[in-house]
């Protein structure tokens, strides 16, 4: 479970997150919905321990990210929107490197690497350098790296952005499987179709504040009916 309590973060005169609280449950996919500059990325960075909240705290399975950083992060897998691969490392080297950083070694490491490679269908390209991968292959490699240690909590920053339909399907199936295994999944997304299909709960934020929270059906109802996009625009004040 990933939770944030009373999160507040300012960058100079700009308030990125303003007293935001949330909870993402195990065995569920929770989606952060918000426009550009709404505070999604700042929130995800606070979960990953990359930035410290000015006020409030983030906990992963009860471990405070600021105080017990190593314990909290060892239970987390985080996929960044730009993947951040090393051009001169192969697919399997990326996954192995991440596994080692999560403390795996020997047979446990080898087994975990093979599982992650198989789960993402990367066996055919395992020895290809990241520089020559397509966008979809890069996403899969980054995701294999993210799940290699079998994290109980997963954070994904706009995972379907720029992906073709085949890659989206692979991602969708994987997330459903992980959810069924009881993994807590928190993601941010702009793709309303994906959000509707995958999300168990939605957290709508605007200007760093919680606007609405609930199941997709509840959010649509609070937005006055219609579809999720119309409800989202209404709740965030972009539509009357």
């Amino acid at each position: 479970m990933i939770s944030g309590e009373g999160l507040r973060k300012r960058f100079g005169a700009v308030t990125a997150v303003d007293g935001f609280s949330f909870a993402s449950q195990d065995g569920a996919i929770t989606t952060l919905l918000g426009g550009n500059g709404s505070g999604k990325t700042t929130t995800l960075r606070m979960i990953g321990g990359l930035i410290k909240p000015d006020h409030g705290h983030v906990a992963i399975d009860g471990a405070d990210v600021a105080r017990s950083r190593v314990k909290a992060l060892s239970r987390l897998g985080m996929l960044h929107d730009e993947f951040g691969l090393y051009p001169r490392l192969t697919v399997v080297e990326h996954v192995r490197f991440a596994g080692q950083l999560y403390g795996l070694s020997g047979r446990r490491l080898s087994g975990a690497v093979e599982n992650a490679i198989d789960a993402l269908g990367l066996a055919d390209i395992r020895n290809r350098f990241a520089a020559g991968l397509s966008h979809g292959q890069r996403m899969k490699t980054a995701l294999a790296r993210t799940i290699v240690h079998g994290p109980r909590n997963l954070v994904l920053d706009e995972p379907t952005r720029g992906l073709d339909v085949f890659s989206v399907r692979v991602l969708r199936e994987l997330l459903k499987r992980l959810r069924a295994d009881g993994v807590c999944i928190l993601m941010s997304s702009h793709a309303m179709a994906e959000v509707m299909e995958l999300s168990d709960r939605l957290i709508v934020i605007d200007a760093g504040r919680l606007v609405a929270e609930g199941t997709p059906g509840e959010i649509i109802a609070r937005g006055g009916g219609g579809d999720l996009e119309a409800a989202f625009l209404k709740l965030t004040g972009f539509a009357a």
């Binding site: 990359l50 950083r69 992060l73 960044h80 090393y86 051009p87």
Partner: peptide, 12 residues
């Protein structure tokens, strides 16, 4: 090349 953030979220 944006690979620093993924590195920093590891428990290292």
């Amino acid at each position: 090349r944006r690979s620093l953030e993924p590195l920093l979220v590891h428990p290292v």
